[in-house]
Amino acid sequence: MEFREFVRERSPALSRHAYLLTGDHQLAEDLLQSALAATYRHWRRVRDNNPDGYVRQAMYHQHISWWRRRRVPEHLAADPRGAAHADPADATALRLTMTEALARLSPKQRAVILLRFYDDLTEAQAADVLGCRVGTVKRHAHDALRRLREMAPGLLADVLSEGSAR
């Protein structure tokens, strides 16, 4: 597969990952662009293995690098759903709640949650993408899920009811 073809086919999915990592469309575009540029430099080596995994790993590493440089202080709201997102559609409200809750996680925790539950990767596969040990993935997943339960206690019930409504 050629690089242009890969970008054309996989950009929508990779763009969603970037958005879920950053919570901001413009940052997501920049993040994906940086990751694709890094992938292009190593395309001959990457194309026959797992180019998706390489781009995702590059995005996670780049995002953590940006996060370390910026260190923007957190602003926690009492209710993660907030009145600013008063949308009548339940699915939209759920998506906004999930996005806000994910944005409050550390970059590593967010990456683990996305890899494990959005990409449906095993702990070993997630550890491979992130370049860490399986135990580290387990710890980040445990901490992230605990934090999500604290920040948005009704989120689990909302996700389960949304899933059963389909």
Rank of each mutant, 00 (worst) to 15 (best):
residue 89 A to Y: 10
residue 51 P to S: 00
residue 53 G to Q: 01
residue 152 A to H: 12
residue 18 A to V: 00
residue 147 R to K: 15
residue 97 T to M: 14
residue 110 R to G: 09
residue 116 R to M: 11
residue 55 V to Q: 01
residue 89 A to N: 15
residue 112 V to N: 01
residue 19 Y to S: 04
residue 31 L to P: 02
residue 101 A to I: 06
residue 51 P to V: 00
residue 147 R to V: 10
residue 72 V to S: 12
residue 74 E to H: 11
residue 100 E to Y: 15
residue 20 L to C: 05
residue 116 R to T: 04
residue 122 T to P: 00
residue 25 H to D: 14
residue 74 E to N: 10
residue 131 G to W: 02
residue 40 Y to A: 09
residue 97 T to E: 12
residue 101 A to D: 05
residue 152 A to K: 08
residue 29 E to H: 06
residue 65 S to Q: 15
residue 120 D to H: 06
residue 98 M to W: 14
residue 48 D to Q: 09
residue 12 P to I: 07
residue 150 E to R: 11
residue 134 V to R: 15
residue 87 D to S: 13
residue 143 D to C: 09
residue 80 P to D: 11
residue 159 V to H: 04
residue 43 W to V: 03
residue 160 L to M: 07
residue 75 H to P: 05
residue 36 L to E: 06
residue 53 G to V: 00
residue 55 V to C: 00
residue 21 L to A: 04
residue 82 G to I: 13
residue 129 V to S: 00
residue 86 A to F: 08
residue 166 R to F: 11
residue 11 S to Y: 10
residue 94 L to A: 01
residue 68 R to I: 13
residue 139 R to P: 08
residue 59 M to L: 02
residue 9 E to V: 13
residue 162 E to C: 05
residue 86 A to T: 13
residue 98 M to A: 15
residue 66 W to K: 03
residue 105 L to R: 08
residue 67 W to M: 11
residue 16 R to P: 08
residue 83 A to I: 11
residue 57 Q to I: 04
residue 159 V to P: 03
residue 85 H to G: 12
residue 116 R to S: 03
residue 70 R to P: 13
residue 93 A to W: 09
residue 71 R to Y: 10
residue 110 R to E: 11
residue 150 E to C: 09
residue 131 G to R: 06
residue 128 D to N: 07
residue 45 R to P: 04
residue 98 M to K: 10
residue 31 L to V: 05
residue 58 A to F: 02
residue 22 T to Q: 04
residue 61 H to L: 13
residue 61 H to Q: 15
residue 73 P to L: 08
residue 153 P to A: 12
residue 1 M to Q: 11
residue 130 L to N: 04
residue 23 G to W: 06
